[in-house]
C-alpha cells in the first residue's frame, strides 16, 4: 500500500486515531461535531471502542509457555546447525588423523636412509669419508630410533605399513674442530612420525625429533686423519 492511499479525511480514521489518543485539539473538536451529528457514526465509534477492548483482552490471552529452557534450546540450536555440524565433522576427522598411530615399514625407512646417504657419499671425498664412517652407525641409530618410535604406538592398534615416507635427507651442518667432527643432518618425513623432542643415541650418533616434520641426526666422533 502506498502512502498516497491514506485518506486522512475518512471520519472513521479519526475515530481510530482517537482510540490511540493521537488527535490534536482541532481534530477532537471535528470528531465531536461529527459524532453529535450522526447517531450511526456514534454507534460505529462505540463498536470500534469495543473492538479495541477485545483486542487488548485478546493480547492478554496466550497459552502457557515454558520459557525456562527457551534460551537453552536456542543455544543448543546455535551449536547444532548444519554449518556447525560440518565443522564438528572436520574437527573429528582432524582428531582422528592426529591420533592415528604412526606405523611404518622400518626396513624400507632404513634402506631409504642408507640410499640417501649413499647418494650424498659420492659428492665429495671428504663427505664420503665421513659418511662412510658414520653410515653404519647412522643406519643403526635410525633402526634404534624406529624401534623406539614404535614404542609410542598404541599396542592395541594393528601394525600397518608404509604410512610414512622419507622425504629426503639434507645435511645441514658439518663442524670439525680439535679433531672432532660434528655432523648434523635432517631427515624429512611426509608426515609426523612422532611429536616429541626425545632423542636416542647409537654409535656416536644421536637422533632427535625436533619438530613435527623432521628429525635431526648428529654425529660426534673423532675425525680420521686426513
Amino acid at each position: 500500500m502506498r502512502s498516497e492511499e491514506i485518506n486522512p479525511n475518512d471520519p472513521m480514521f479519526l475515530v481510530s486515531r482517537n482510540l490511540d489518543g493521537e488527535l490534536t485539539g482541532a481534530e477532537q473538536s471535528r470528531l465531536a461535531k461529527l459524532l453529535s451529528e450522526s447517531p450511526e457514526m456514534r454507534r460505529e465509534a462505540e463498536k470500534y471502542c469495543e473492538l479495541n477492548e477485545a483486542l487488548k483482552s485478546f493480547g492478554c490471552s496466550m497459552p502457557d509457555v515454558d520459557f525456562g529452557d527457551f534460551s537453552d534450546r536456542v543455544r543448543q540450536s546455535l551449536g547444532s546447525s548444519e554449518d556447525d555440524a560440518q565443522l564438528v565433522e572436520v574437527d573429528q576427522a582432524i582428531q582422528s588423523w592426529a591420533s592415528k598411530p604412526v606405523v611404518f615399514d622400518e626396513e624400507r625407512f632404513t634402506a631409504g636412509v642408507l640410499e640417501q646417504i649413499g647418494e650424498s657419499r659420492s659428492s665429495t671425498s671428504r663427505s664420503r669419508s665421513i659418511l662412510f664412517r658414520i653410515g653404519m652407525p647412522f643406519a643403526a641409530a635410525a633402526a634404534v630410533a624406529l624401534v623406539w618410535i614404535g614404542g609410542f604406538r598404541n599396542e592395541h592398534q594393528p601394525r600397518r605399513v608404509a604410512d610414512v615416507q622419507i622425504g629426503g635427507i639434507e645435511r645441514v651442518a658439518t663442524h670439525i674442530s680439535h679433531g672432532n667432527t660434528r655432523l648434523a643432518s635432517v631427515v624429512s618425513f611426509d608426515r609426523t612420525p612422532v611429536e616429541t623432542d626425545r632423542s636416542t643415541r647409537s654409535g656416536g650418533i644421536s637422533l632427535s625429533f625436533v619438530g613435527s616434520l623432521r628429525a635431526e641426526l648428529t654425529s660426534s666422533e673423532v675425525a680420521p686423519p686426513l
Partner: peptide, 22 residues
C-alpha cells in the same frame, strides 16, 4: 502514518467480521 492507516484498515475489517460479537 502508514502504520496508523494499516491499524485503521485492520480495525475496520475486523469490525465487519466480528459484527455479531460487538
Amino acid at each position: 502514518e502508514l502504520v496508523k492507516w494499516n491499524v485503521f484498515q485492520a480495525r475496520k475489517k475486523l469490525r465487519e467480521m466480528l459484527d455479531s460479537f460487538l
